[in-house]
């Protein structure tokens, strides 16, 4: 591992009596994408707030770009860019003015600022909207402008707090593409998300945050091995039908109250056809069928059987 871009030990934060972070140790290598994955309220945003110097930790150490968060916040601020969950654009200005504002605050020369603004407007497909007030922008455009503003100073480390939450699928793809391009240029990215798919798609390493603790950390492949597979859920009209199907399909779990049967499956078309064929031959009628692929719920369920899960490191 090269020098760590971000490193924390025992980071803690409480708001009043509510402990949001209960001692976080993590390390992010330079030039990689690190995803902090967790449900709402896990403490992801608080983590980003602390690492980006917006708020101070109660205890623990943190260094970003080799600078101590508590002692040299301005040195950290010079090295980082942050795109938060809530758009951090000036609604009273237009897109171009927002970017020029960032260029001025990053102390770029006027000529450099204009050049960088023009580059970013075209890179983020905002040339046409450049002179329109930001208040008229769509969600996707705001998010792109937001990220463009973060990139004005070419930061080496970028924090993205739920960069695709609330975006339509196409805008989401565009955002992923942009993130990949950034890493190709050697930038380190610290990303938070509540989508397993997104972390899987983008990250070199993923850490799972739950109730203020890291409960697992590893590469996407390592984490997936810890997750149970998907299943097919079958619903029946009567208990008799359910019993018949249950007897036919070994390894399935039945719920007599809901008249459903859960059959482990990869959810592929072949296995669904095979399953239905078998039920057909046994003359069992299925009233409905749903395919369930593993998601964040499954991961958390698998890892946090108990309420306050112990930390498990995969390596």
């Amino acid at each position: 591992m090269t020098q760590a871009a971000i490193k924390t030990t025992g980071l803690r934060k409480s708001f009043g009596s509510n402990q949001v972070l209960k001692g976080i140790d993590l390390e992010v290598a330079e030039g990689t994408i690190f995803a902090l994955l967790g449900p709402n309220g896990a403490g992801k945003t608080t983590m980003v707030h602390i690492l980006s110097t917006l708020i101070r930790a109660d205890a623990g150490l943190g260094t970003v770009a080799g600078h101590d968060l508590a002692k040299e916040p301005d040195a950290v601020r010079d090295a980082i860019g942050v795109t938060g969950q809530f758009s951090a654009v000036d609604n009273f200005l237009n897109g171009e003015e927002n970017l020029m504002l960032m260029a001025d605050l990053r102390h770029l020369s006027k000529a450099n600022g204009r050049k960088r603004t023009a580059e970013l407007l075209s890179r983020f497909d905002l040339v046409e909207a450049a002179r329109k007030p930001v208040a008229t922008y769509s969600g996707g455009m705001r998010r792109r402008l937001d990220l463009a503003m973060t990139l004005v100073s070419s930061p080496r480390i970028i924090f993205l707090d739920e960069p695709t939450t609330g975006l339509d699928p196409r805008s989401r793809r565009t955002m992923w593409q942009i993130i990949r391009e950034l890493v190709a240029d050697g930038v380190t990215i610290f990303l938070t998300t509540q989508y397993l798919e997104e972390a899987d798609e983008l990250a070199d390493r993923i850490a799972l945050l739950d109730h203020g603790r890291l409960i697992a950390e590893g590469t996407p492949a390592e984490l997936k091995r810890m997750i149970p597979g998907g299943h097919i859920s079958l619903e029946f009209a009567s208990v008799e039908q359910l019993q018949a199907a249950s007897a036919m399909l070994g390894g399935s779990q039945k719920d007599t109250d809901a008249l459903t049967l859960q059959v482990p499956s990869d959810g592929g078309v072949g296995s669904i056809r095979d399953l239905l064929d078998r039920l057909d031959r046994g003359r069992v009628d299925v009233s409905s069928l749903t395919v369930h692929t593993p998601d964040l719920d499954d991961v958390f369920l698998a890892l946090t059987g108990q309420p306050d899960g112990e930390r498990a490191t995969v390596s």
Partner: peptide
């Protein structure tokens, strides 16, 4: 109340 103030706070200004 605007997000941009949070952005200013994370910049070396």
């Amino acid at each position: 109340a605007e997000g941009i103030i949070a952005r200013f706070r994370t910049m070396a200004i």
